[in-house]
Amino acid sequence: MSVVVVSAGLSVPSSTRLLGERLAAAATGQAPSDVRVIELRDLAVDIAHNFTSGFPAPALAEAMDAVTGADGLIVVTPVFSASYSGLFKSFFDVLGVRDREALAGKPVLIAATGGTPRHSLVLEHALRPLFAHLRAVVVPTGVYAASQDWGDKGLDARIERAAGELAALTGALSAASGGTGGGTGGGADGGGAISVTRGGAAGDKFDARNVVPFEEQLAALRSAG
């Protein structure tokens, strides 16, 4: 099970990154050093350029590929102005423009850090709708850590609970789709079951095997008339 952490923390060291690493360690049983953490801070300029140029620079493209290819995601943002940070949103904006299916069906654990516990509902009113829109499967328990939580026992329990849910969902969805990296045939989603798109050939619209034949495109117009 590959889990990738996306952290929008800005300081070094960052409590946002720390929360992401603890969640990943709890979900995978791996040491923090073995978990891939994408620091959006390092990609901030590339993300801004992606908006103006329309394509990602190599480092950003690699990060997007890692996120798209992961079995599960842990996303962590500091709270800015009662919401996720602009940098955090911008990363998922450019990711969605590049591949609107990037997060479809993917288990995502949402987490946030803030200076005060009064912003804890940011998980529910900002992050959860964003990832619902991106058609991710959002883990029921989100984890919010205010400054004071770092000296409090309750945070551990929430981390364990959320991480357990992420691990269970990731395992279940991987099993349902027959493993990672491709799987079910190409073309349109038949509806019904959760569509799991994981960056393999199945979701690739530039793969000749996935093209909707021209006659079908033309016929669809005639029947719609």
């Binding site: 801004a48 350029h49 140029s53 394509f55 620079a57």
Partner: peptide, 15 residues
């Protein structure tokens, strides 16, 4: 189209 974005050097390298 591409002004005020990546530098000339980055853009010539990537496109």
């Amino acid at each position: 189209v591409y002004g005020n974005g990546p530098s000339l050097e980055e853009f010539t390298r990537q496109t």
